[in-house]
Design a protein around this nucleic acid. Structure first.
Length: 485
RNA sequence: GGCGCAUUCGUCUAGCGGUUAGGACACCGCCCUCUCAAGGCGGAGGCCACGGGUUCGAAUCCCGUAUGCGCUACCA
């Protein structure tokens, strides 16, 4: 298809994929899938000092985990590659040269230190810091003199000094910028590496990108880029600038606000479905009431027109709730698979029986918000959980409590059918005999079995634990409590 | 400092000239119940940032102000 939509996600590989980047990728991906266009992944690694191969690997891993597949890019290829900017250096140099010849750009021999000095001076004198254009009209002699000094030239874009440049943003509408406020910014560094505004324009053009969907932080860059498009006589794509994601203090989201990378969320037991669903709602809505969407529904329903203009505050609680929702919705077999690595990583659940585990997972499923919580819910099956002394004293503050344990031990020992129904029957009867409400009478048993006041359903847990371990735990707790009082 | 963007319950948001300003998370209460969840029902929570206009009528349109954020790099 010749005129079909092509969008891209273009991260710079300086670290893990953050939730903000993930959302940008998601919106691009949904937009592309919705119209059956192409989604391209491009690596913007022109900052040598900050880019790493590890980061590229991490970003790819996170995108794959989220299920955001790309049609062209690293590990996929396509006919507009390479998809890594450091492998496209000659392309940038070639077009920069063309701009030079057309006098749309010029060589600048000022070095970074000098520029920094002048900028700081301007700031100190309350002037607008801006390149003074001193290299704009250098004579050949002056250039030779600079070269003799050993100076390397960068290439600056010769910005129009009057008129204005308008961005027709799909989300924000028309935004106008006065050209006089623009700087003659550098497009090619002295070392031959392009800068962002130049490389992005060239690649978007060469890769036939039709819609540039990116963070709002790029909105002020857009007039500069449009000017480059025009200077190079490229067709200008459509733009859409997404609102920022902030922390609860309205500051840019950072470590202080908790987990921010997709990888962290994966490790902590979040599901990709939940991440996608939560992320999509951070700046987009379908109607006045729907909050839960499957990926297929999103592909069907997503539209740029309904993206919000406002920055959004990251809310971990809502993500957790949503993750719990998707856990509850899962088939048990699948949940067992997902939960197994978390149990194995504790080293407690070696050689675990899958059918048995399935029964346990059924009990835990509606109680888990994140996968890693499986460990706290089920650890008592694998070891004796030490109960805090304070809690022991509280639960066993009356003599009946200890008597309940003794009786429960005796009754359970005699039980032939160690099944939930039988267990429940005799324990309830026990409570009744002692004139205790079940809520009260079962609590000491719960603590003895699970080590906690809050646990999975007791009778099922006892059955799954088995007679031997159950009796052992009861005995142990009886001893502990006796010593305590 | 200059330029730009934004401003509806604590949070995410619906709303696109006339609504009792709707939903979700979180919070509170009740029901269910062996604890905790889940689920069901209900509640509290918004003078729609502020001030001016326009209009019979403004959360919705316009202009200011304030606040927040972004850009202002040989970062992206």
């Amino acid at each position: 298809m010749e005129n079909s939509v092509r969008v891209r996600f273009a991260p710079s590989p300086t670290g893990y994929l953050h939730v903000g980047g993930a959302r940008t990728a998601l919106y691009n991906w949904l937009f592309a899938r919705h119209v059956k266009g192409d989604f391209i992944l491009r690596i913007e690694d022109t900052d040598k000092s900050r880019s790493t191969n590890e980061a590229i690997g991490e970003i790819i891993k996170s995108l794959r985990w989220l299920g955001l597949s790309w049609d062209e890019g690293p590990e996929v290829d396509g006919k507009y590659g390479p998809y890594r900017q450091t492998e496209r250096l000659d392309l940038y140099a070639q077009e920069a040269k063309r701009l030079l010849e057309n006098e749309k750009a010029y060589l600048c021999y000022c070095n970074p230190e000098e520029l920094k000095e002048r900028r700081e001076l301007a700031l100190k004198e309350k002037r607008t810091p801006k390149y003074d254009g001193r290299c704009r009209n250098l004579s050949p002699e002056e250039k030779i003199a600079f070269e003799k000094e050993g100076r390397k030239a960068a290439i600056r874009f010769n910005c129009p000094k009057e008129g204005e440049t308008a961005v027709d943003d799909l989300i924000r509408g028309r935004v106008e910028f006065k050209n006089e406020a623009l700087d003659d910014f550098i497009i090619l560094r002295a070392d031959g590496f392009p800068t962002y505004n130049f490389a992005a324009v060239m690649d978007d053009h060469l890769m036939k990108i039709t819609h540039v969907i990116r963070g709002e932080d790029h909105l002020p860059n857009t007039p500069k880029q449009i000017l480059i498009y025009q200077a190079l006589e490229y067709e200008v794509p459509a733009f859409a600038h997404l609102p920022m994601i902030l922390g609860s203090d309205k500051k840019p989201l950072s470590k202080r606000h908790g987990a921010t990378s997709i990888e962290e969320f994966r490790k902590n037991g979040y599901l990709p479905e939940a991440m996608i669903n939560y992320l999509v709602l951070l700046g987009w809505s379908y109607d006045e009431k729907t909050t839960l969407f499957s990926v297929d529904e999103l592909i069907e329903k997503f539209s740029i027109e309904r993206v919000s203009k406002n920055p959004a505050v990251w809310d971990p609680a809502k993500l957790e709730w949503m993750n719990g929702h998707y856990i509850r919705q899962m088939f048990v077999e699948e949940l067992v698979d997902k939960v197994l690595p978390f149990l194995e990583s504790t080293g407690l659940a070696k050689g675990i029986n899958r059918e048995w585990l399935k029964q346990v997972v059924i009990l835990a499923q509606e109680r888990m918000k994140i996968l890693s919580e499986i460990v706290d819910w089920t650890d008592f099956f694998f070891k004796d959980v030490e109960t805090e002394e304070k809690e022991l004293r509280e639960v066993f503050s009356t003599p009946e409590a200890l008597r309940v344990l003794g009786l429960a031990r005796d009754k359970l020992k005699e039980l032939q059918e160690f099944k939930k129904a039988e267990i429940e029957k005799i324990l309830r009867m026990l409570c009744e005999d002692m004139n205790l409400k079940p809520a009260k009478g079962l609590q000491p048993i719960r603590v003895a079995i699970t080590g906690r006041k809050v646990s999975l359903p007791l009778f099922e847990s006892i059955e799954l634990l088995g007679k031997e371990k159950t009796l052992a735990k009861l005995d142990k707790t009886i001893e502990t409590v006796k010593q305590l009082f």
